[in-house]
Design a protein around this nucleic acid. Structure first.
Lengths: 163, 163
DNA sequence: TAGTGTTTCGAGACTGAGAATCAATTTCAA
DNA sequence: TTGAAATTGATTCTCAGTCTCGAAACACTA
């Protein structure tokens, strides 16, 4: 389950830290070294990180960081609207950056774990219509497409000969 | 979290038991009293049952039934294509009958827990198109709409006055 | 019907993700 | 600098679900 994770643009991390610090100040929380470190680790990656991966990244910068702190910090980031939690198949929560992003859904490769985001206005409209027909007022939804990505598909159809 | 659960048509349960027994015979498994009992309990309900609820139902018929057996039996039913596992928000797996049914998605009321099924061919088509555009070959997907059902919506907009 | 080799059973231990607890430490306004 | 309040890391707890194990049930044969 490898995943390509090029570095996120530094401006995003900076903006996020700024937003976080005002959010923290606004409700009597406190700025801490650990929090900054975890936020940096999170925003220096793109993609959908599990807490486990994030703990690993954080520990590279400071081995004394505890997993509980990472859990707590990600919850704060989520509450502040800077990250959003995703529950894909596999039972592990993954977080993605949510700063100034709007809604999107996901394509997930079940072979390599790669996650691709997409938006589709038409699908959203049809969902709303379906909900309306059933008298539901929808607050949020989850649309995930699972399968093989282009690369894994290719490897599947042209497998290396067994030696 | 109440849920209306009218009894399922008896023919379904009978057909399911038949299918299960041939599936069991085909791979050297054994027919047991507990398995029959759990299958009966499952197919005598409609809706999306959690293992917890199913254990309760099973224990009503035989208090000595263990939860592990219910887990194991539901896994067999799933493998045999007679039930399918759904992972909605809340972290508990729910099972629905899958005999001779085709694909559908779900509307979930976050207030009363009611779950409504729907099908929409247009949405499926658009999903396929999106996947294709990204080079994915989709094996399965998950579409869940969360919100308030008609009844809960109404209670929300006309709340009882506090006494 | 008894004998025999598997499979399955129930109870309880175990697992993994995540939340809660707690004593010790850190933050920050005064 | 002080000290109340928030935070930390370690640990424990919870919850859903799986695994293990000795005992019991099943299916098949003689």
């Amino acid at each position: 389950m490898k995943r390509a994770v090029p570095p996120r643009k530094p401006t995003t991390a900076a903006a996020a830290r700024e937003r976080l610090s005002s959010w923290i100040a606004a409700r009597g929380l406190k700025a801490t070294r650990q929090r900054d470190l975890i936020v940096d680790a999170f925003f220096s990656q793109v993609g959908h990180l599990s807490v486990e991966e994030l703990v690993e990244k954080a520990k590279q910068r400071d081995p004394s960081i505890g997993a509980a702190t990472v859990y707590r910090t990600m919850k704060i980031l989520t509450d502040a609207g800077l990250a959003s939690a995703r529950h894909f198949e596999g039972g592990q929560t993954r977080y993605e950056a949510a700063l100034d992003r709007h809604h999107h859904d996901h394509l997930i490769c079940t072979s390599c774990g790669n996650i691709v985001e997409f938006e589709n206005e038409r699908i959203e409209e049809l969902q709303d219509r379906v909900a309306q027909e059933h008298g539901f007022s929808v607050t949020h939804h989850k649309l995930e497409l699972y399968g093989l990505c282009a690369r894994c598909n290719q490897q599947q159809s042209h497998p290396k000969p067994a030696r």
